[in-house]
Nucleic acid binder design. Structure first.
Length: 433
RNA sequence: GUGGCCAUAGCUCAGCUGGUUAGAGUGCCAGGUUGUGGCCCUGGAGGUCGCGGGUUCGAAUCCCGCUGGCCACCCCA
């Protein structure tokens, strides 16, 4: 029988990676919460309509990247390809914005897109994100960028490039769209197939095209179509970023792939990912999305970041910490007769807060000790016939290679002392180098 | 979705232009006599050579299809 493998474009998170992810996820939650953002979790399946209406029918995501299926009642459901629409639906549906504005939220979870997989691009991937709902102030655009910025800092990642742009108001964009169409229409015959289609469906996306790069360079500038309030909004964002010490690069051609954005949009990049997908995430203001979903008009801003890609960067620059869940102690019996006593000792150590592995296998003691070091334990506790008889245990310091016999009553404190000494030594070494 | 490259033990790979029971290193398990580790020695387990067809007296090795991975495009996380 053929073995069953994980579906194409999906990946198991094995223990080594699990610890690194938890490190990243915890860091994001901690930074977001330091700004007053609270956690939220929404369904992984949503009505297909949430995305077709919210994200936009002419976007790549809705056109060809969604996993959509029918439930038994004939309703069309979709594995969520992004998190903003669902979060906004949840918040406005529960009227959270009627209690305290803005509503500040952070989240983390799996998302799904049906693009052809390659490194850094999976059918199922993970995003962390925040949404700030109910207020239109440019200060909040800057705030969310600052959250992301501090998050990268918390992970020890330098060299993040931040690109920002303003899409302006709906009226600004209508004006710009007209200008773009006027510019491109005479050139229609020379455009690539995609661009010819975009010209009629979604002219802003023309700026994304790399093949017609020459034409893009000469195209009208978005900024010139923005009215005074829109310019002021963006100028304020730029000023706030500067005073927060965040380096932002203006990119007139940055439009983002989702229809619901307006005013501020931004993306984060890192050069070290060169071959792979180098965008770590992005976001922006989406004041119009609430109405598209049938809710009262509500301003909001947010971002989403790709966990797998950020981990690739963190691994490449070497800032991923070693597994904090590593074992402290391995407790082993010498012969089967001491299994019960050894179990009791392990229990006692766990009660005292230590991570203790119990090894009562019928195996040579030297193998058990070898296993102890390999499991990452820094102390081995040996429970043999002599120890059971004298109500004591042998505590062996695996790094120092020394050992002592102590009464059970003093066991926990003795082990704790050894562990504390080791961790002090480790940090000292870490700080020196 | 389009094009290209790849697929041999848990891991890293060897296997020349098709020829007898497919190898190495490493890892794993066990032993090196009676309760002590990260070294060493010995032994062992582990592969339908991704899957399915075809060519051939004979295929891991050639051809086709499929699946999966990677790369580029596209797009983004």
């Amino acid at each position: 029988m053929p073995q069953i493998a994980a579906p194409k474009g999906t990946r198991d998170i094995l223990p080594d990676e699990f610890a690194a992810r938890r490190w990243l996820l915890d860091a994001h939650a901690a930074v977001a919460e330091s700004f007053g953002y609270r956690g939220i979790e929404t369904p992984i399946i949503e009505s297909t309509e949430l995305f077709s209406r919210g994200v936009g029918t002419d976007t790549d995501i809705v056109e060809k990247q969604m996993f959509t299926f029918e439930d038994r009642g004939g309703r069309s459901l979709t594995l969520r390809p992004e998190g903003t629409a669902g979060t906004l639906r949840a918040v406005l549906g529960a009227h959270l914005d009627q209690e305290l504005r803005p509503v500040r939220l952070h989240y983390a979870g799996p998302f799904f897109r049906a693009e052809r997989p390659q490194a850094g691009r999976q059918h199922q991937f993970t995003q962390v994100g925040i949404e700030c709902i109910g207020e239109g102030s440019p200060a909040l655009d800057a705030e969310i960028i600052e959250v992301a910025w501090r998050f990268f800092k918390a992970l020890g990642i330098d060299g993040i490039h931040l690109q920002v742009n303003s899409l302006g108001s709906p009226e600004d964009r209508a004006r710009y769209r007209t200008a773009l169409v006027a510019y491109y229409t005479p050139l229609e015959a020379s455009l690539c197939d995609d661009c010819r289609r975009r010209l009629h469906t979604n002219p802003l996306r023309l700026l994304d095209c790399k093949r017609d790069a020459g034409l893009v360079a000469a195209a009208p500038i978005l900024w010139e179509s923005l009215d005074r309030p829109s310019r002021d909004h963006f100028t304020t964002v730029l000023r706030d970023l500067e005073s927060a010490g965040i380096d932002a690069i203006r990119n007139d051609r940055l439009v983002r792939g989702l229809d619901y954005y307006g005013h501020t949009v931004f993306e984060f990049w890192h050069d070290i990912l060169q071959g792979a997908q180098s965008s770590l995430g992005g976001g922006g203001r989406y004041d119009g999305l609430a109405e598209l979903l049938g809710f009262p008009s509500t301003p909001a801003t947010g971002y989403a970041l790709g966990v797998e890609r950020i981990l690739m960067v963190a691994r490449a620059v070497g800032t991923v910490p070693s597994d904090p869940a590593a074992t402290d102690v391995l407790v082993c019996s010498v012969e089967p007769g001491q299994a019960e006593a050894a179990a009791g000792v392990a229990r006692l150590l766990r009660d005292a807060g230590m991570h203790s592995i119990l090894d009562v296998a019928e195996r040579r003691l030297d193998r058990k000790l070898r296993g102890a070091s390999r499991a990452g334990a820094r102390v081995a506790v040996i429970v043999g016939e002599n120890e059971v008889g004298s109500d004591s245990a042998v505590v062996r310091d695996l790094d120092g290679r020394s050992q002592q016999t102590v009464p059970i009553a003093e066991l926990a404190s003795t082990v704790i002392r050894i562990l504390a000494r080791d961790s002090v030594a480790e940090t000292a070494i870490g700080e020196d180098s």
